[in-house]
Write a protein that binds this DNA or RNA. Sequence first.
DNA 1: GTGAAAGCGCTAACAA
DNA 2: TTGTTAGCGCTTTCAC
Lengths: 342, 342
Amino acid sequence: MANIRQVAKKAEVSVATVSRVLNHPEAVSIKTKEKVLAVMEEMNYTPNGIARSLALNRTSTIALLIPNILNPLYPQVAKGIEDVAHQKGYNLLLCNTEEDEEKEKEYVEMLLEKRVDGFILISSLLEKEDIYKIKNRNISLVMIGSCKENIEVDIVFTDYIKGAYQATQHLIDIGYKKIAHISGPLKGMENREKIMGYEKALKEVEMDISKDYIIEGDNEIEGGYLAAKKLLQLKKPPQAIFAANDLMAIGAMDAIKGAGLKIPDNIAIVGFDNIRMSALVDPKLTTISQPVYKMGLIAARLLVDNIENGDEEDAKQRIFLQPKLKVRKSCGHEDRIREIFN
Amino acid sequence: MANIRQVAKKAEVSVATVSRVLNHPEAVSIKTKEKVLAVMEEMNYTPNGIARSLALNRTSTIALLIPNILNPLYPQVAKGIEDVAHQKGYNLLLCNTEEDEEKEKEYVEMLLEKRVDGFILISSLLEKEDIYKIKNRNISLVMIGSCKENIEVDIVFTDYIKGAYQATQHLIDIGYKKIAHISGPLKGMENREKIMGYEKALKEVEMDISKDYIIEGDNEIEGGYLAAKKLLQLKKPPQAIFAANDLMAIGAMDAIKGAGLKIPDNIAIVGFDNIRMSALVDPKLTTISQPVYKMGLIAARLLVDNIENGDEEDAKQRIFLQPKLKVRKSCGHEDRIREIFN
DNA sequence: GTGAAAGCGCTAACAA
DNA sequence: TTGTTAGCGCTTTCAC
């Protein structure tokens, strides 16, 4: 495959000139430029980006670490990131961590070797120490969602405590007394925050917090199904369930229907995320929506900005988006709802 | 950041030895090796993969071009590919083409510069000429789904003609006489193949093929919705609709319900893809399932094999997976179905 | 088992 | 406006 030297030779110019045609065309005479471009065309020349990266110490590549690409939430974030990245001339290295801290660490190691220009970590499970492996190398980093530890980094997230609080409070407002929570894996900070919001709402009205009513799921439909089954087998099964994500809420709905119960008449459900599926299930799922596409956009813009203009050491951004309660059918009590919302 | 020379100096060995420790540790004496590893640790050395790639002419990176990451079908394929890639030590460069031929071409250009080791193109819209830009450079390439043109490449796909034929035939078997088709964008070969399957089934029983009954959608829920609306406004609206993907089928269901009609009583629906959502909508969607995760696995294995063992010039694989009819509720006529399937 | 040095293809500083 | 050349950090061949 043709390289810059061969092009230079054939065009009867120096390699520097060929390089200039590519990178600073304004610094080359029109005549020379045309000649060089013609030769490039003729030789079917494609500049070697690897050599370029080595010389410039820049890869125009961003690492994207996602917990689970099969959860429809994340492709939405990824889309936001991709839109910005592509527009700014960056490529995305996709890494599916499977909510596995080991795999995530391994990936960081690989990506550091690949000399990516920046990292976007979504709902990362990394510890401070691992994050600092990136920061210490002065590589730009933006996180999306909460992270395990409280670290000085740019971060874009939804107020999960508040979202969970809203969801729970809504169920309380409607009149439910026994409200359970299906949590995501507790290793994830976000899930612990959602529990905090759930408990906060209960405490406010002096309702009991029972450990039996908090079940750890796996963020998947299957886990929601299993968790709901457990809840149904309790001596005092709940009247309402707040699930930490829509996928688990949908799984829970399946379990409830499977047990011959009606939603929301026998048990009410609220989810979290507002994925598209949630408006399609029967009954439509009441949920907390977070602006995920926008989070992707913002995070990517922030990252590109950091890469290109340098991180300002001191001013780490904590961008904090508001969750929003989306009332549909699965939480029940239409009259009561009408009363509240009109 | 520490480089190999600094490590060598501190460890009092040559750079060649440091390189050997990394790449051919068996060729280094234990003592030297330990010394070098200790220094690496101490200096917090991370090998520069870019320099490595330049020297080896190999990036351990695979380009993945996806039409639309928001269509749940593709993350499933991507998961299959990622699983293999990660296991084999490759990274994935994610490119969302948005079913836009121009964007896809642009991406190919970028990726060629990045010197990826291989390409996986999903439902590509590229023309022969563009594909050959890759092939001529002797870069491995595997396609998933049909491609626009008939080219000699490794390709993994589902038999779309057959799938569409099965879907249509099933509707015919149940007894519907007026069967419409909501197609995906006609620029996509797969969609044209689905039309062929649809028409084949109709012809076989000497049913008319009416152009009014074939509407081009956009592969999205919204497009299915609009297409169904058009079909409902026809003088002779169809009794059944076969949609080229589940997303459009779901949109169509929405339109039909919105018009006050019952599914399947007034209009029956069959989709294509068997995405998870399809089992959750009401009524559950009858559809054609394609083994997408598996397609991703197979394609990635094939690609990695080509990369590592060299393409055998002659023997291009055409791997051909079977679609399968998944009967649920949306196509109706339970008695008739029971009769057929028992 | 180890080291010296060429080379991978490019960019940019410097000189002309 | 153009050319010469020294890197960028690594791998590998060849010699010892």
